[in-house]
Design a protein around this nucleic acid. Sequence first.
DNA 1: TACAAGGAGGCACTAACGTGCATAAAAGAA
DNA 2: TTCTTTTATGCACGTTAGTGCCTCCTTGTA
Lengths: 249, 249
Amino acid sequence: MLKEERQQNILQILNEEHKIIASDMSRRLSVSEDTIRRDLKELDKKGLIKRVHSGALRIGPPVVDFTTRQHISSDIKTRLAKKAMDFINDDMVILIDGGTTNLQFVKQIPLSLKATVITNSPPIAMALGEHQDVEVIMVGGTLFKQSMVNLGIDTVEALDSMRADLYIMGVYNIDPHIGISVPSISEALVKRKMANISTEILAMVTSDKLDTVSNHIICPTSELTYLVTENVNANVKKLYNNHEIVVVE
Amino acid sequence: MLKEERQQNILQILNEEHKIIASDMSRRLSVSEDTIRRDLKELDKKGLIKRVHSGALRIGPPVVDFTTRQHISSDIKTRLAKKAMDFINDDMVILIDGGTTNLQFVKQIPLSLKATVITNSPPIAMALGEHQDVEVIMVGGTLFKQSMVNLGIDTVEALDSMRADLYIMGVYNIDPHIGISVPSISEALVKRKMANISTEILAMVTSDKLDTVSNHIICPTSELTYLVTENVNANVKKLYNNHEIVVVE
DNA sequence: TACAAGGAGGCACTAACGTGCATAAAAGAA
DNA sequence: TTCTTTTATGCACGTTAGTGCCTCCTTGTA
């Protein structure tokens, strides 16, 4: 059994049982207690578990069925999220809007991060409920249920008095000839404002969104700083040749 | 049983019972009194409990984390919610703040309701995601993770330009001599503003919240219109004799 | 003041830990 | 593939944490 595999098992068991005993794990996974101890040490260092004498405790509530399914189905999104994590540091002011890719990203954020997160998405805000050192600022507005984000004039006005170091933009699709587009004018206005108040902009894009033709409102992309994606075709490359493109294989 | 687990148990019990006796705990948790004493000493040092001769006292009001509270006494909350539903009609503008009782209420709202809901609580907003004919207005602010509501000056300012027919107020406890109280000044300010902009005010209160002594900031209750509760003692009855008290048996 | 219950600190025992080292297993490089 | 390098694992052994018991001291109450 591989180390990663074993550690995944430990996390899985811990998720179900809320606590584990090192000696117990040693028997269940057929490795020495030393190995288990080393695993627990590592996982604790990563902030995934709480190491205690004799074993370890789960951090936070168990991951429920719904979120588990999301994890399984969105392997690519997880990989993109992990890559995007490289651009996150302590003490940043991070602006994040909605979308499942962004939600996946937020779920990857280590509990140890110290930062300020501004968001107009209730699910994103709630996903940060366990992060003690992350201050969450919610931007209000009219809830747009399709994508679970707050939009409207109030949202734009509230954003007016804020500034962020990095804006993690949720993306629907990228038209190779125009750029990033969104399905509604309200969303476009909010995203435009968000782009304006941020120093850098990062977008995570899964390949199904690349190279799609769209007749929706354009969101200006001239300030895009990082594009994190799986692979990229010639058109997109040309469009973004001024920006850093991170390709996750 | 792990040390941390045991201490967690002690805190849990103390949270429910307000005081504990060391010798008692020794029996209940099957460890020696010495160990219990050491635990109490540690927890006291961390400022989580107040150590006294013979045992320990709880510091402040009973507070459990949001996800835990969600599962506590939800059956009675459901019954309160169903009763409170009598005061809801189509085309109303309903203002709802946070709390698990309120969340339970929102989950009872029929999908057919046509209304506008204003809230500063992300979970409440998300719970209305399926209601096609409910327009949800989210009020932004700084997310207060313990109760999952947005608070702060921005919240109060945003509320300033709104009006509601009914405010469903989340309640922590009712002091028989003072009235409704909340654990923080930020929350008090927001609740006060919410009360000001609403024509009627409704509060659902489970019996464990009745008649509890609290030294926290008062939230003015003079405008309270409906009190929906399980049962009510003389003190509370006297305090609210101007208002409609609905008792759910 | 006296007396019982509770508490502090020391001691001892056991289970758990960490570390260094030898060996086995992966992962890369040729 | 085969060899080399790196990483992971298990064992030995000295150290530490957690617990119960004991003794002496403190606190609360009659």
